[in-house]
Design a protein around this nucleic acid. Structure first.
Lengths: 141, 141
DNA sequence: GCTTGACCTCAAGCTGGCTTGAAGTGGCAA
DNA sequence: TTGCCACTTCAAGCCAGCTTGAGGTCAAGC
């Protein structure tokens, strides 16, 4: 059973070939050779791609993920995981507050939002920076 | 009582002068004149900056925020607010799942994470894209 | 043997939201 | 009056995570 080449990996994982090359360049994955021009990968690459997706979803940067992926299986620092979980807690708290504020503002029948005490309260919170701006809205695809 | 100039606004709002200029360029705020070289602003600029911070926190882009800020007070499309709230709900759901996964992974005593069924389950979820990668980790300043 | 076309490399571009640097200008104090 | 210095403008740079484009290579099919 031949190792999958880059296009097979791309098709099965949904990760574009350009991204796979990029990940290889970054040291996140490694090809185990070539068939002609084409990179081939160990089937274990699918698991790694899953871990990468997971790490990204958790808010780790690619560099952080690379640092956590040791040659033989992922060796993940449990302390870092807890830190990330705490960060997520904080972010969830903020987003929840935002969401409630938005819902209220949409339902509020004050003539203008500025006359609604609840809106003003959340506005004040944003003004003093108690609600952080997100990384960015929705950049990538 | 004189209108505040750019450095006064920067100091009181915590928003850097370069950002204020950038916002003006983008049409998010407007200066009402100059004192010498320095821009001066209507005191209402503080409220606007609050609204901008609020919108950013809610995940609106600066362009979206600009579109919502009409000359006389913010006129916010309630439907957009509800849409954003729904988006936030989804994001909160994902982040919560991630957080739980991280907490579990940090506590799990399986010899390696790959041998933990719970970890594998969340990994599979990430692999098939049911958990989206966030915009980006923590870019800005 | 020759074409086709998917892959290759390398460099540059894109997105959003700013920041930074160079070069210019104006008000105010000495 | 002269010098300082914070402001100004404009263009370019930065971050992450890719994507895109130009130009090259290789295996397979006719």
């Amino acid at each position: 059973m031949k190792d999958p080449d880059i296009s097979e990996v791309a098709k099965q994982s949904g990760v574009p070939a350009s991204t796979l090359r990029y990940y290889e360049e970054k040291g996140l994955i490694a090809s185990n050779g070539r068939r002609g021009l084409k990179r081939t990968f160990d089937p274990g690459v699918f698991e790694k791609l899953g871990l990468i997706a997971l790490g990204r979803a958790a808010g780790f940067t690619l560099d952080e993920i690379a640092a956590m992926m040791s040659p033989d299986g992922p060796r993940i620092d449990r302390k870092r995981l807890i830190e990330k979980a705490d960060e997520l807690d904080e972010k969830i708290r903020q987003l929840t507050a935002m969401r409630d504020g938005l819902r209220h503002a949409s339902a509020c029948r004050a003539p203008s939002h500025m006359e609604c005490p609840s809106f003003r309260r959340i506005l004040r919170a944003a003004t003093v920076g108690r609600i952080a701006a997100p990384a960015s809205a929705a950049p990538g695809k």
